[in-house]
Design a binder for these strands. Structure first.
Length: 491
RNA sequence: GGGGCCAUCGUCUAGUGGUUAGGACACCGCCCUUUCACGGCGGCAGCACGGGUUCGAACCCCGUUGGCCCUACCA
């Protein structure tokens, strides 16, 4: 109970970094931060056929973009390096440790060599299933057919199976799901190490085995993972016991489903964290939206009661995070809510914070030449947007001359009645907000127009359409000379 | 087939025996307005079903239905 808090996120690099995984990582991260503990990133690449270095890199970069910095784990982009005292943090680089542990179990007869071939297993399986029963290695209808007692010849290639307890229940005290009991007899002697090409050698250990060895070695105190792992836990618990390892606490977080309740997949739009980055979401918004799926922060025991209270900073989340407030049921991912949160967070951010995030979405070379005042104006003028993509889009007029014009709007707003006023605008020198406002007051007065009349006409001439930020800011952003050029062609 | 998990508005959820079932997103309407937005105000909308227990069930028990997970020499 006095164990220092250590959590870990252990993705397998078999594809993109899925937002479901990011959410799990986020919970681990929040929990560690909350309790002043450490957060570990560990790469589970024992599936040789599907793991790639590219995928490892994508995971590392995705995590970094999302702000989920790890205290221990691989160094981005360099497989030979890592930070932390328990490395390496890629499982394929930890084979010696696993093999030693497998050997330990073998020596104590807690595990045994199984040289049944896949073909043989398959035929036994179908025989048992034909009898309407479940195939479990060396259990039930299959009992006594296993090779536990024979073929101990270490010179033959064989898989290694772990002797599971028989009878009674295996109990899991889950911090989120509560107590879950599994009949021990519903599990069989599972494989902890695959057979090797080389006879007599111990092959690559499997997931459920490596997890136990690593979580113990890395001193993980709280195993927080997706609830698709609930059924793996009763396999792992006896293994901890066999090693004499202390059991970590377990917390299985519910899945994230798509809009239609099915497992979140490409079909629902974006699943990869990289895509959210490209869509112009702030990492802070992604963190908030993900955290709020299945978790209800409680302020003094009460959930949020206003929209404002829904918008939490990282500090708020860390302060409020509690596994007891995590839902047991799966949640559906709602893009609309993410958008709304993104908008709120954009509104709250300072222009300087936003600049760094917006830059990749605008012409960077031009952007970099602009003054701070210009950038600040550009950002504040578009801070009502729902995404960085939207902000950049509504700033296009500032970077390029419109090529096409909304004809109907042009006809409606650039009339003979406003052209004289437009001519006066051409003469203006001072483009500061206050000067423009004073000048416009006079122009409108002299021509008997409303600001709306002049503003809309200018918008069409400047942007090609009757939509833009506030007109004085729009003019400032376009720049005096360019305003003259764009307006003159209409007179 | 076996084992496990889950079930409140369309979505995220509050709720732990007595509430007009509360909030947020989305949607609809109105207001504001220098366009588009932002913002403000208001509205629509829910306890999966069936049995119990109880004076009284969204809350407790059983069943049904539905969804998901595991059942690999994947993770």
């Amino acid at each position: 109970m006095t164990r220092p808090v250590v959590t870990r996120f252990a993705p397998s690099p078999t594809g993109m970094l899925h937002i479901g995984g990011v959410r799990t990582a986020l919970f681990c991260w929040l929990f560690a931060k909350k309790h002043g503990g450490r957060f570990i990133l560990r790469i589970e690449d024992t599936d040789l056929s599907r793991s790639t270095d590219d995928n490892i890199r994508i995971i590392e970069e995705g995590m970094a973009w999302c702000g989920l910095e790890w205290d221990e784990g691989p160094v981005v982009g360099d497989p030979s390096k890592w930070v932390g005292p328990h490395g390496p943090y890629r499982q394929m680089q930890r084979m010696d440790r696993y093999r030693a542990k497998v050997q330990e179990l073998l020596d104590q007869d807690l595990a045994y060599r199984c040289r049944c071939s896949r073909e043989e297993l398959e035929s036994r399986r179908s025989a048992v299933e034909a009898a309407g029963k479940v195939f479990q290695y060396n259990r039930g209808l299959d009992a006594g057919k296993g090779c536990a007692a024979k073929h101990h010849d270490a010179s033959e290639s064989a898989a290694i199976r772990f002797r599971m307890p028989e009878g009674g229940d295996i109990v899991l005290h889950d911090l989120i799901k509560g107590e879950i009991r599994f009949p021990a007899d519903s599990l069989d002697d599972w494989i902890i190490a695959r057979s090797s090409e080389t006879p007599g050698e111990i092959g690559v250990p499997t997931y459920n085995f490596c997890v136990v060895v690593d979580d113990t070695h890395m001193e993980v105190s709280h195993v927080i993972r997706g609830d698709d792992h609930v059924n793996n836990t009763p396999k792992q618990i006896p293994l901890f016991a066999a090693f004499g390892f202390p059991l970590p606490a377990f917390a299985h977080v519910p899945m994230i489903l798509g809009k239609d309740g099915a497992k979140l997949s490409k079909r629902h739009g974006a699943t990869s964290i990289t895509e959210y980055q490209a869509m112009g979401f702030l990492p802070s918004a992604v963190r908030l939206a993900l955290a709020r799926l299945s978790w209800t922060p409680k302020q003094d025991g009460k959930a949020a009661e206003t929209a404002e209270e829904e918008i939490l900073t990282d500090a708020d989340m860390i302060r409020l995070f509690d596994l007891a407030d995590v839902q047991k049921s799966a949640a559906r991912f709602d893009m609309d809510k993410l958008s709304w949160m993104n908008q709120k967070l954009i509104q709250r951010a300072s222009w300087r914070e936003l600049e760094h995030h917006l830059r990749p979405f605008v012409p960077e070379v031009v952007w970099d030449e602009k003054s701070d005042e210009w950038k600040a104006t550009a950002i504040t003028a578009t801070q009502k947007g729902k995404s960085l993509v939207e902000m950049a889009e509504s700033l296009r007029f500032a970077f390029e001359r419109p090529e096409t014009f909304d004809e109907a709007a042009a006809a409606k707003f650039i009339t003979d009645a406003v052209k004289p006023a437009l001519r006066e605008v051409l003469a203006l020198e001072d483009y500061s907000h206050d000067a423009l406002k004073a000048a416009f007051d006079g122009i409108m007065e002299r021509h008997g127009l409303k600001l709306k009349d002049v503003a809309q006409a200018l918008r069409v001439a400047l942007c090609g359409r009757p939509v833009s930020p506030m007109i004085f800011e729009t003019m400032y952003l376009v720049g005096r000379d360019e305003v003259r050029t764009r307006v003159e062609k209409w007179l």
